[in-house]
Design a protein around this nucleic acid. Structure first.
Lengths: 234, 234
DNA sequence: ACCTGAACACCGTTCAAGT
DNA sequence: ACCTGAACACCGTTCAAGT
């Protein structure tokens, strides 16, 4: 998928540098396009404008390139999304992972790092469920599965355990992205709820839609799952 | 949100019926637009073509209406999505709910019904995490929260428990939607994985990406959560 | 090898106008 | 009250052409 068109040999642009003069300040206007630059610009644009804000034309503009130049480097917009997503999901595991005696700490660390990466780029949680997995995401999945296996989850239960944990991270991150609105929005939602009077008494009373401790929700749910897993392996 | 523009008084279309002749078969061409018809057509279109296939123009065509007529009934495309989504999430609770002694059966039934509704309309799982909650979804959330409360979850833990269960359903449904591909696709994915050789040994060996028992995965994860909840309430 | 503009077949939405 | 077409400001992508 990220098969990567030619890369590496994108040098020799000598002739062009002179036209713009000696200004060190000429930004990226003189840099040739490259997959790396395209991906970096995509992430910037997505961070700034969200999924709907990334447009092939805007992306090209952002790179000060002709509108259609991107198509030499990339097959289509879907590929741009895929590359941007995987770029943001890179995982640098601390060395100590796997050496600790506590598998649980390893798992919690990996998952919190994953969640943090997605929260830093809110569009990623929306994109991940509809794209193929890139190498960085596959790597995270591999490490997660390995950690659970090392923790003593039986082979027969390993996939269900892996998917359950994956689902929890995905669900929690997506949910937070959708409900972690501004205080104003939250208050408006609660008021709207109150207007319905008798229809939603429980979630009105518990102020469910006003949740503001998403980190806590994530942790508590994860604890339930991990407790279940460790009690089950006996 | 679903505030509903005028509805009900959409009768008197006497003059038009004669032009088309006596044919009983003249389909919807004579019916005036209405929110209900628009929503029904949206669901049809989404079922047939997916999220990307729903277009205001196509929707109008489908309704044999002028291209821009929809805008009298609806503010914008986002509202159409919201109405279609909530339409598909209606819940008809069986009467016995709440009378059973088994809270756990109630919860499991509600969640499997919810998941089944979303799987019947795969676009709904993609849409739900980015739209405001409509009345039907709020109703499901209310019933879920109430069931957990009745089950003995302490008020202080109720919201975290509700969100955890919600996250599991969302995550599991979205995941299945993304990975439950055809056999061909799955085999291709596994082969691609094998090509990476040493990079993903665990998920290659466990054939994680070839998962085909998504119902089982959903159930097992849910059991872990509910076990945790019932053990915690003591 | 790399980039470009023009062109095609679409979008969502506004608006002034029709009945 | 309800519907319409024309128009505006966009899209993604193809293609023949440039260097």
């Amino acid at each position: 998928m990220a098969a990567a068109k030619p890369t590496g040999t994108q040098g020799k642009r000598s002739r062009r540098t002179r036209k713009a003069g000696p200004s060190v300040d000429d930004k990226s206007s003189e840099m040739p396009l490259s997959l790396e630059r395209i991906v970096a610009a995509s992430v910037e644009l997505l961070d700034a404008q969200g999924v709907g804000g990334l447009t092939m034309r805007r992306l090209a503009d952002h790179l000060e390139a002709g509108a259609m130049s991107l198509y030499w480097h990339v097959d289509n917009k879907e590929e741009v999304f895929g590359l941007a997503l995987d770029a943001v999901l890179e995982y640098r595991a601390p060395q100590h992972v796997g050496e600790t005696e506590s598998w649980r700490d390893d798992v919690v660390h990996m998952l919190e790092d994953w969640r943090a990466s997605m929260l830093r780029h809110p569009w990623s949680a929306l994109l991940l469920p509809r794209l193929a997995l890139g190498p960085n995401m596959l790597n995270r999945l591999e490490l997660l599965s390995r950690a659970l296996s090392r923790a003593g989850v039986a082979d027969a239960d390993l996939n269900a355990a892996t998917w359950s944990v994956w689902n929890h991270v995905m669900g929690a991150t997506i949910t937070r992205g959708n409900f972690d609105r501004s205080d104003d929005d939250r208050n408006a939602a609660q008021i709207r709820l109150a207007e319905f009077g008798e229809r939603y008494p429980t979630i009105e009373r518990s102020r469910l839609l006003l949740e503001d401790d998403w980190d806590g929700v994530f942790r508590k749910g994860l604890d339930l799952l991990l407790d279940g897993l460790s009690s089950r392996k006996g």
